[in-house]
């Protein structure tokens, strides 16, 4: 079995006239947490949707566990997705189902387990994210952080080989953020799976990642361990990690000289 779970080669993808990926290549290992970081609009979420087969690339290939995602039949793709978990930015909980039923949903859809077994599994998953006590609540009664934890419990319901996290820390208060950071780290250790975290939250993401890929302008700018990237000589990486206002990514959006504009 290869150590590489996700293999991306020469990926090209555009939305209308806007090029999102321009020959992106990347390997994601089978175990550990891999962070994909980059500025807003760099295509991080799009990359997750491409890995999950929800979008089709213009060119290039994405292999997950040796299977070319975009050449699979719908049935095969759905079989592959049963081994993938995805945590959406909004949680994406089904609003007409309770917390318990949301976590039970993939189990009811894809297994023939009886109600007692499903109940045990759901309560264990909810316990893992600290929300067993909220099992009977409705999604509308949950805070943003709680919604993501429930969504995380649902993502691990079928014991997947990988979990993709789409901006898990966005809009969280410090306590919720701390809970999510430690949950992602601990779950990955306990389940010994592949976690792909897409984020632009530098300190927290670097603190839990084993490998980091920085992407910008449709390509991988730099990859490596968090320690190596902190020491990187690349000006782009330095600017991104330290949040400098100006640098290779300019403060000003491209425009004519200001005097020309003012004198018009």
């Amino acid at each position: 079995m290869s150590d590489i779970l996700v293999k991306i080669r020469d990926l090209h993808f555009s939305r209308g006239d806007r090029k999102i990926f321009d020959g992106l290549s990347m390997d994601i290992p089978r175990r550990g947490i891999t962070a994909i970081m980059g500025p807003s609009g760099s295509g991080k979420t799009t990359l997750l949707k491409l890995i999950g087969g929800q979008l089709t690339p213009d060119q290039g290939s994405i292999e997950v566990d040796g299977l070319n995602v975009h050449q699979l039949s719908t049935r095969k793709l759905f079989e592959l997705r049963q081994r993938m978990g995805m945590l959406f930015q909004s949680g994406a909980l089904l609003t007409d189902l309770s917390v318990f039923e949301n976590v039970a949903y993939p189990l009811r859809e894809h297994t023939k387990l009886n109600d007692a077994m499903i109940r045990h599994l759901v309560l264990l998953k909810l316990n893992a994210v600290g929300l067993r006590g909220a099992a009977q609540m409705m999604p509308s009664e949950l805070s943003g952080g709680m919604s993501r934890r429930v969504a995380l419990a649902r993502a691990i319901a079928l014991d997947p080989m990988m979990i993709m996290y789409d901006e898990p820390f966005t809009g969280q208060d410090p306590i919720s953020m701390g809970v999510l950071v430690s949950l992602i780290s601990e779950l990955n250790k306990a389940l010994n799976i592949c976690s792909i975290v897409v984020s632009h939250d530098v300190p927290d993401t670097l603190s839990i990642s084993d490998t980091v890929h920085f992407i910008s302008a449709g390509k991988v700018v730099e990859s490596g361990s968090p320690e190596a990237l902190r020491e990187s000589q690349s000006k782009w990486t330095h600017q991104f990690i330290h949040g400098d206002a100006d640098g290779p990514v300019p403060f000003h959006y491209p425009a004519d000289p200001i005097m020309e504009d003012l004198c018009r």
Partner: peptide, 14 residues
């Protein structure tokens, strides 16, 4: 809009 449909697709539910 709330990604529930995308979420279902990713749970291998049509």
């Amino acid at each position: 809009a709330t990604e529930q449909l995308s979420g279902m697709e990713m749970m291998a539910v049509n």
